[in-house]
Design a protein around this nucleic acid. Structure first.
Length: 581
RNA sequence: GCGCCCGUAGCUCAGCUGGAUAGAGCGUCAGCCUCCGAAGUUGAAGGCCAUGGGUUCGAAUCCCGUCGGGCGUACCA
């Protein structure tokens, strides 16, 4: 049983005389900021004071006198301030907790309460009309870490990427590439209005010009594999495409562009350490008639109506501010309908819950989408949308406007090239999801001490170095046991222990709140406390055997926990780092 | 106009779902390596938590108003 549960149980036993039971109140136990206030603290007396018409401080005194815990667990119970009850946890018990955290099958197993339920986490899902830009990097870092967090608390989380390879934008993409291509061969052609003007399409057109059909087919073969088989190479001879009727040739160009761009996007994700179990293609929804079937289902649920020759969804019944079109008056289905079909298929694929990460420009889309899922009977909470606020990129003190059509944006690749995936991910993950983020590219490029991730990596490398040195001296660091950790003495050591044993609850709270950034805060805290311990307890290897053993064990435990957290953040934990001047 | 998000140190941001004296990094100033890794560490300076009310034992945190900033308000995707 976790310590908190143990304390709650004891407190409720003491509260029975007041007629207060578990269902009446939620007992908070938290780690006080000030260490003189003990290891854990509760405010029950303050919460119950008003209700029981008692002075909180007196009530706290009574409760404190009535709770009984084994001395092996709780060393002392004190009341303080306006009526807090503070518990001091026995140090032997803290050691026990630490062992429990670092031992396989221990505390980190106990928090796996998800029962293996499948959760779909969809993120990035950028339009396949250009290279991924840096905005996707933030979503990638968040999504991937959330997947790992959910797995850590016992769910079966599934990373998914939705590819919008249908609709008008794809046609526009084909027209754009075709225009670039024809311009290269000297044809007079007007560039499509709102076409994609990025350099990458110009370059792509140039490459295409040099390739023969076989090369294109070979590229398609290399691109396709079992996990990613949707877009195939366009048929026919590249050189002949310009001779075809426009609509046909546009389709060919679109297909080619999609293939190339998706291969870029996939490669960028790979470089950034993102793994998607599924790349889901919108085109498949149309081909498999899922879009039509979703519409039929909605009609059957009686949440649609016809007006002005269009078919509408009664999203106002689900809290939306107006009803939304599913099928336009010209008979074309909307993106919204395809999206409903997509999410409904997620539901049918057996996910207990779906979490989507969207940009702030889509927040108005939430009520209609969650509404549609409710209408289809998926359950009120089945679809959960997390909005990731905007990233503003600063360069030379100015904002960079991101526009794919104009071809002005910072690519995710250039971010990885310049600051490295680790640094980028860590920085994104120190911010909470719903706040705007100013990303200073100049600062990031400097690789300076402004990178908080370095402190954590450094602490890890330092521990590795210490353990290596110990091994070189013939010092054997054995199994971690209560005995081997029994000789911790210094306050700096206990401070570290207290932080290390918080790991399970940090993971649980970060996962439940969908706030992966709590992990970076924790990593930073652990690294800082280790550094303090380090400076305060110099000369570990020269100490008497028992002290040395305890401190090496503590270092080992710290390293294990840092590795685990860094792994969740997708950040490498290096054995050594280059020394700096 | 309406809706959503945000406003915390000079700058970039945390603040563990309402707790005790508001935190970190960068920048500034002053210390700490003949010693296991100084990308570290110890300390100083820097705050009317945008603002005015409310809720209560207690508010940066919850509610309402105001002011500022971002985004959205399509038979686009």
């Amino acid at each position: 049983m976790m310590l908190e549960d143990l304390l709650r149980k004891g407190l409720f036993a003491a509260l029975e005389v007041y007629g207060v039971f578990e269902e009446d109140i939620n007992i908070d136990l938290e780690k006080p900021r000030d260490r003189s206030h003990g290891d854990l603290s509760t405010n029950v007396a303050l919460m119950l004071g008003g209700r029981l018409k008692r002075k909180p401080r007196e009530l706290a005194g009574e409760i404190a006198a009535n709770v009984s815990f084994s001395r092996d667990v709780i060393e002392s119970v004190e009341i303080a301030g306006p009526g807090f009850i503070n518990f001091r946890v026995a140090r032997d018990y803290q050691v026990k907790m630490l062992l429990d955290v670092i031992t396989p099958g221990g505390a980190l197993e106990d928090i796996k309460t998800g029962g293996g339920k499948r959760i779909n986490v969809e993120f990035i899902s950028a339009n396949p009309t250009g290279p991924l830009n840096v905005v996707s990097a933030r979503a990638g870092a968040f999504g991937m870490t959330l997947v790992k967090l959910l797995d850590a608390i016992g769910y079966d989380a599934h990373a998914e990427y939705y590819v919008n390879d249908a609709g008008r934008q794809v046609t526009l993409l084909g027209q754009s590439l075709r225009a670039h291509y024809l311009q290269l061969v000297g044809d007079e052609i007007e560039f499509p209005e709102n076409g994609y003007k990025g350099r990458y399409l110009e370059i792509m057109a140039g490459e295409l010009l040099e390739q023969d059909t076989e090369a294109v087919q070979a590229a398609a073969m290399a691109f396709n594999d079992e996990s990613f088989q949707r877009i195939t190479a366009p048929e026919g001879n590249a050189a002949d495409w310009r001779q075809l009727p426009e609509d046909q040739s546009v389709r060919f160009f679109a297909k080619y562009a999609l293939m190339k761009i998706l291969s870029w996007q996939r490669e960028t994700c790979r470089r950034f350490g993102l793994r998607f179990e599924t790349w889901y293609f919108e085109s498949e929804l149309h081909e498999s008639k899922r879009v039509e079937r979703a519409l039929e289902k909605l009609k059957k649920m009686d949440v649609t109506f016809e007006e002005d020759d269009a078919i509408w969804f009664r999203s106002t019944d689900f809290g939306d501010e107006k009803d939304r079109v599913l099928v336009r008056s010209d008979g074309m289905s909307t993106y919204f309908l395809a999206d409903i079909a997509y999410h409904y298929h997620k539901y049918q694929r057996g996910f207990e819950r779906a979490i989507d990460f969207w940009g702030p420009d889509h927040h108005g889309y939430i009520p209609r989408m969650t509404g549609a899922m409710k209408a289809l009977g998926c359950g009120d909470d089945w679809l959960e949308v997390q909005i990731l606020q905007q990233v503003t990129f600063m360069e030379s003190g100015r904002n960079i406007q991101m526009s794919k059509r104009k071809g002005q944006f910072v690519t995710m690749d250039s971010l990885i090239d310049e600051v490295g995936a680790d640094v980028a991910k860590y920085i994104f993950l120190t911010r909470k999801p719903n706040s705007h983020l100013d990303f200073d590219l100049d600062l990031a490029r400097e690789q300076s001490d402004a990178n908080p991730v370095m402190k954590v990596k450094y602490a890890h490398a330092r521990i590795c170095s210490l353990l290596e040195k110990a091994a070189g001296l013939g010092v054997v660091v054995g199994e971690s046991t209560a005995d081997s950790l029994a000789h911790l003495e210094d306050e700096a050591e206990w401070n570290l222990v207290r932080e290390l044993i918080r790991l399970p609850q940090v993971i649980v709270s970060a996962a439940r709140a969908r706030e992966p950034h709590r992990l970076t805060g924790y990593a930073d805290e652990v690294a800082g406390l280790y550094n303090q311990f380090w400076h305060h307890c110099r000369g570990i290897l020269e100490k008497p055997a028992e002290r040395r053993e305890a401190q090496l064990q503590l270092s080992l435990a710290t390293r294990q926990i840092l590795r685990l957290v860094l792994d969740m953040l997708g950040v490498d934990a290096p054995e050594s780092m280059e020394k700096r001047d």
